Amino acid sequence: MTLLAACALPRSGPNKNEIFDGAVERGGDAQVIYVNDHVTRASAFAPAYGFSNSFRNAGQVGADEIRAGDVLGLSIWENVDDGLLTSLGASSTALTEIQVDSDGFIFVPYAGRVRAAGSTPDQLRQTITERLSVQTPDPQVTVQRVAGDGATVSVVGQVTSQGVYPIERPTRSLSAMLARAGGVAIDPEVAVVTVKRGNDSGRVWLTDLYASPLNDIALRPGDLIVVEEDQRNFTALGALGGQTRVPLGNETINAVEAIAMVGGLNSQLADPTGVFVMRDEPESVASRVLGKPVIGTQRFAYVLDLTRPNGLFLARDFIIRDGDTVYVTEAPYVQWQKTLGAITGSASTADSLTSIGN
């Protein structure tokens, strides 16, 4: 009965031997690997944020170029008392809120259907002037481009003012557009900026955006800018100072730092020879670690023995990645203590019951 009770004693998870029993060599489905210098180098794969060349090489949008969807304002002066467009006694007429249609054209009375998309306001002014001059002497035309929905981007997420913003001369770059939206509304250290352009997307840390001009990409019409808090994290379990999910932030975290972030090893429970980092490795990384080709994603349980002469150095060099589980087993004597406690506790309970019976 005592042995059965001992087997059912509470604990924080599997012990070291039980994890090793799940190794591929023993019929399990996990690669259980002791960490060494080769493993730290081969597994040091950290997906980095950044923009591809297609984003970085895109030229800036011409702030004055008229596009379908833009709204224009025209003012026309005529050199006669009773002009084509001006009323009697007036020298000019204003045509406001003229939207460029989906084909890129606008309609101007007496000038007809005029192609506006692709032109600058000055080029469009010349075109309208030439068409009107056939019917009225020496017309004078001004064209004002009001940014419409032809050259806009959407800014959403953790910014002060979400919305649809026009790409104008001061806001043609990513950082300028974020400033136009009032800046980010979360801690800049954990803010990630994603730009979605058609079927492509790229993301960058906000701090890296401001640190490198290469990340301050030119915006294109239709871009979607999303600002969000980074969600990368690892989970800490077992004989640690705390058992929780821990954000990675924008720093590179090693195993020593990961353990320290949750209060270190529990000195009353932890087995320093049984520190495990569990993750799913992509095919390319798994092949480098094992030194042989494998097919598909592989389950790995990396073992860190902190009692070895270089154990702490290896743990310092082993990088923690998004989705990792850091698990520390209990020391073997802990279960013995629990077993003895259960036995002595049972004996004490029996003596108490006997005393009550007497």
Rank of each mutant, 00 (worst) to 15 (best):
V141E: 00
A116I: 06
G150K: 08
A258Q: 05
S12R: 14
I186N: 01
G263W: 04
S119G: 02
R131K: 12
I319W: 03
L132T: 09
T142I: 10
E189N: 04
G341S: 10
L178F: 14
I320W: 13
A117F: 00
V256L: 15
A179E: 08
L88T: 12
V289M: 05
A6T: 07
P121W: 09
R245T: 15
R232S: 09
G13S: 07
G62E: 10
L290W: 03
R299S: 09
A111N: 07
A218W: 04
P282Q: 11
L95T: 01
T127S: 15
G73C: 00
E97Q: 14
S212P: 01
G264F: 11
Q337K: 13
K16W: 07
N53Q: 15
V193G: 08
T297H: 08
R316N: 13
D322I: 07
V334M: 01
T297I: 15
R115G: 02
T207A: 15
L132R: 08
Q231G: 09
T93A: 14
S161N: 12
P188H: 14
D200F: 00
R316D: 14
A342S: 14
G150N: 05
F51K: 03
A6P: 00
G89I: 08
S52F: 02
D29Q: 11
N254T: 11
Y110M: 06
V289I: 13
T307Q: 14
A176Y: 11
A301E: 06
